[in-house]
């Protein structure tokens, strides 16, 4: 479904991604783990067109994403949940969700998706009239995720959904990710919490200073000595 070939990205003179290749199959949950500054977020930003790429190709169902401006990529069924809970702080929860469906015109399908998101996140329904900026961290993460689901995406890029959340909320977020996965949504997950990420994923890639150092089935990686030492603290 998503195929990234030999991707190179520069920040000025800094070579941030050095020829990354990865694939995400239909309905798969693939995670991208690695330390701070390894290039995980950069990879997602490059895929969804928020960053220009120097060379390489990004194919979504055979279409070259690098030639499409970022605001049009969403209409191809790729949704991006940015890192750090980018919600529209001065809009209400429901307005935030409706912004997610910005490119859609059909009111009926918007309402249908809204109901679906409220089903995934009952807590958002309770607070539909509240300003997003006044939500707790976990609720903001739910809102950012819910907003991405408003377009009925076939693939979702999730950037550090567990960042800054209490362990209990991390569990809740991951159980939601698993639910989405079970419902057939393809997910590319970027996480620092390697343990949780590997526990829910089908496959995983390990990113180290801009290159992919390891890849394979999630369980195998979780049992790999090098991964355990570097990322799982065991």
């Amino acid at each position: 479904m998503l195929e990234v070939n030999n991707l190179n990205v520069f920040y000025g003179a800094i070579h941030a991604l050095k020829g990354i290749s990865l694939t995400v199959g239909d309905g798969e949950l693939v995670s991208l783990i690695g330390a701070n500054g390894a290039g995980k977020t950069t990879t997602l930003h490059a895929i969804s067109g928020l960053l220009p790429i120097a060379s390489g190709s990004i194919l979504l169902d055979g279409k070259e994403l690098q030639k499409i401006p970022s605001h049009k990529i969403i209409s191809l069924g790729l949704a991006h949940v940015p890192e750090g809970r980018h919600v529209f702080a001065r809009m209400t929860v429901e307005e935030n969700l409706r912004m997610g469906a910005y490119i859609q015109r059909d009111q009926k399908s918007i309402q249908k998706n809204l109901d679906k998101v409220y089903e995934y996140f009952p807590r958002l329904k309770e607070r539909w009239k509240q300003l997003a900026g006044t939500l707790s961290g976990g609720e903001q993460q739910m809102l950012a995720t819910g907003r991405a689901l408003m377009t009925d995406p076939t693939i979702v890029l999730m950037d550090e959904p567990s960042m800054g959340l209490s362990p209990l909320l991390v569990k809740e977020i991951f159980s939601i990710i698993e639910t989405l996965h079970r419902n057939g949504i393809t997910i590319l997950l970027v996480e620092q919490n390697a343990k949780m990420a590997l526990a829910v994923s089908d496959r995983a890639y390990v990113l180290e200073t801009g290159t992919i150092s390891m890849s394979g089935k999630a369980e195998e990686l979780a049992n790999d000595d090098r991964v355990r030492k570097a990322y799982l603290g065991a």
């Binding site: 969804s48 928020l50 970022s70 605001h71 049009k72 969403i74 209409s75 949704a79 991006h80 949940v81 940015p82 980018h86 919600v87 529209f88 702080a89 001065r90 809009m91 912004m99 997610g100 910005y102 490119i103 950012a144 907003r147 991405a148 377009t151």
Partner: peptide, 11 residues
């Protein structure tokens, strides 16, 4: 409120 999120929402 958030330019990145707006762009990611298709604006």
């Amino acid at each position: 409120d958030d330019e990145i999120a707006a762009s990611a929402s298709g604006v």
